[in-house]
Write a protein that binds this DNA or RNA. Structure first.
Length: 589
RNA sequence: GCCCCGGUAGCUCAGUGGAUAGAGCACUCGCCUCCUAAGCGAGGGGUCGCAGGUUCAACUCCUGCCCGGGGCACCA
């Protein structure tokens, strides 16, 4: 909420209060005061539809009521003109020097300009990426990283206490498959020959970890192919079931290696892959306050606590030897198994335990950023929270749709080098971190994303990242020119002469600058970084237009410093906005 | 069958119930002896998937239908 908007609200509030009991009912609903920026400058700077909303209650025609409200409005130095327009809009025209005050505010607040306290120190836990540690990150994970980091930044800018977390799925069958895959590649390195399981992980990174294992363990873990594969059920190419086959291979590995050695192979793989993911994300500017292990939930009893909570509230029952959570009571499609017939707890059990544990840590908002294919899971976990006596609304899930890469107008999902899916690292290396971070959040999360690599790489005016960064660099360039022409910016002169900024281009730029705090609030409330992206483009456009129309470094001290104050404020806002998106603000380009 | 997301300009997409539905790209035409032309300006382009409904006012809310994507495990 900008100061001007608040001022107008106050004025309207007074006007409506004056009319209450005469033209308006005694009890006026003050929530009907909505002030918006106008789309068209011909309709003033701000407008309200309050007369149309209250027309029925007053018995007047909207335009007549609007006129009465206008007449009841107190005078204000900020407002030069108020008029009734259209179906009953009240349009406000703001005085130029009042608009220019935003420049002063930006200079005073600097990096903090645009922040607000709407989050009121509420605590949010943003969980994102949480990719299974079975291989490198791909381009879809990149979108999750960029989106999650930007949403977290936006929440923080809105006054939230934000905690960023990555949930490590280190306790499941896919980890067993990882361990077996590494061991089998190791056996190949030891000279054994066999056909690799259809369901094993086949990426090159497995061979790299296997090589590391060979170096560490020598041939101490070697077993003959005959021992390993004797008496196993058929694999898929032989007409068997690939899942049953890989499970048999895993069991055999356990048996031949012993639990200790098997575990060490698994942990080696987990550690290697996790550190690769962590480095990848850190290079991408995406960091976490905590990497939360799924295993630790079982170890610290959180799962048992959650199951007890469910039992206490009478929301579990036994059927077919398994323990079921009565999720249908809470709006889910079907009841869910939490402990299998074989006594093993399901993934869902650790999931609700994890979310309960998040609440126990005191978070008001549990924001999960998930792949769109996880949508069915949200109702379940929310049901679990409610069943345990926690508010279901605390869980908010944002579903991120798929990414399709395009290169030269063609789909490009596969890496030409490895023949596998393009990794995030490859994408970053090809188009650069800034373009990646930016392109990933250009679209709303519920929109499929076509990622145009050719455009992201291009150093042309088509590329929106450069367009915005260029605005920042251009201001830096102006300041360099200023020095070389023997001038220095004088803040006192600049601030004293903000009233000189009254050309249409200056007014347009001032309006854009004043919108920034509103955009931060909006983008934060909607968890919508793309709103900020679009705004920054518009801001850059207003700046470039101004740049083309006017010379900033002029002889007149008052004018020069006023204009410099304006463009430096613009630079600050561009920098603040790009920072929230994880994009750099270069001084030169 | 049920659930979620999308359907807006040739293409990619914005659009908190408000005024003549916007931007970028593409296309056409202009602008550097001047702070970076990675820039600026002008122009053509639309039954907002379809049909009802609510409302002073619907791209926006509700219902139904059509098309596209995804999901519906004692997997994780």
């Amino acid at each position: 909420m900008t100061a001007l908007k608040q001022e107008l609200e106050q004025l309207l509030h007074e006007a409506l209060t004056r009319l209450a009991g005469t033209l308006l009912p005694a009890e006026v609903d003050l929530k009907s005061i909505v002030i918006e920026r106008t789309r068209d400058a011909a309709n003033g700077d701000f407008a309200t539809n309050v007369a149309m909303r209250l027309a029925k209650a007053s018995g007047l025609k909207p335009r007549d009521l609007a006129q009465a409200i206008v007449e009841a409005l107190p005078q204000s130095p900020q407002v030069v003109r108020v008029e009734v327009a259209g179906a009953g809009f009240i349009n406000f025209f703001i005085a130029g020097d009042a608009q220019a005050q935003v420049v002063r505010q930006i200079h005073e607040l600097g990096d903090a300009f645009g922040r607000n306290a709407s989050g009121a120190d509420k605590k949010a836990l943003v969980e994102f990426v949480s990719s299974n540690p079975t291989g490198p990150l791909h381009v879809g994970h990149g979108r999750h990283g960029a989106f999650g980091a930007s949403v977290a930044n936006l929440l923080a800018a809105n006054g939230w206490q934000v905690h960023r977390e990555y949930y490590i799925n280190d306790a499941g069958r896919q980890m067993e498959i990882l361990a077996a895959s590494i061991w089998l590649r190791y056996l190949e390195d030891c000279g054994e020959t066999f056909r690799f399981p259809a369901n094993g992980y086949k990426g090159d990174y497995i061979r790299e970890i296997a090589a590391e294992l060979l170096q560490m363990a020598g041939d101490t873990l070697q077993r003959s192919a005959g021992e390993v594969f004797g008496n196993l059920p058929p694999d898929e190419p032989e007409g068997g079931d690939k899942d049953a086959y890989i499970d048999a291979v895993i069991a055999r590995a356990r048996q031949l290696l012993g639990e200790m050695a098997y575990r060490s192979v698994l942990d080696l793989g987990l550690k290697a892959i996790l550190s690769d993911i962590e480095n990848d994300l850190a290079e991408f500017g995406v960091t976490f306050d905590r990497w939360y292990s799924e295993r630790s939930l079982a170890d610290n009893g959180a799962i048992d606590r959650a199951l007890q909570r469910l039992a206490q509230h009478n929301h579990v029952y036994e059927k077919d030897g398994a323990l079921w959570f009565r999720a249908t009571t809470f709006g889910d499609d079907k009841d869910r198994v939490v402990v299998r017939e074989n006594g093993v707890k399901t993934y869902f059990a650790s999931d609700i335990a994890y979310h309960l544990e998040k609440r126990e840590r005191g978070f008001d908002l549990l924001l999960d950023i998930l792949g769109s294919d996880h949508h069915g899971y949200v109702a379940r976990v929310r049901a679990g929270l409610e069943a345990m006596g926690e508010p279901g609304e605390a869980l908010e899930a944002l579903l991120v749709q798929f990414v399709t890469l395009f290169r030269d107008g063609e789909k490009a999902q596969m890496s030409t080098r490895s023949g596998e899916f393009i990794t995030l690292r490859e994408l970053r290396n090809e188009v650069g971190n800034d373009a990646c971070r930016f392109f990933y959040v250009m679209r709303g999360n519920d929109q499929h994303l076509d990622f145009d690599m050719t455009l992201a790489k291009s150093r042309t005016n088509d590329n929106p990242v450069y367009y915005i960064q260029y605005a920042h660099a251009r201001v830096a360039s102006v300041l360099r020119q200023l020095a070389s022409k023997g001038h220095a910016y004088d803040a006192n002169i600049g601030m004293a002469n903000l009233g000189l900024l009254n050309t249409p281009h200056e007014t347009a730029l001032l309006t854009q600058l004043a919108r920034y705090p509103e955009i931060i609030l909006l983008a934060g409330t909607h968890r919508a970084p793309h709103t900020l992206v679009h705004y920054l483009r518009e801001l850059a456009n207003a700046f470039h237009t101004y740049y083309n129309a006017e010379q900033f470094i002029v002889e007149d001290d008052a004018m020069r410093n006023a204009r410099l104050a304006l463009v430096m404020a613009t630079q600050q806002v561009v920098r603040n906005g790009l920072h929230l998106l994880g994009v750099s603000s270069p001084e030169t380009m």
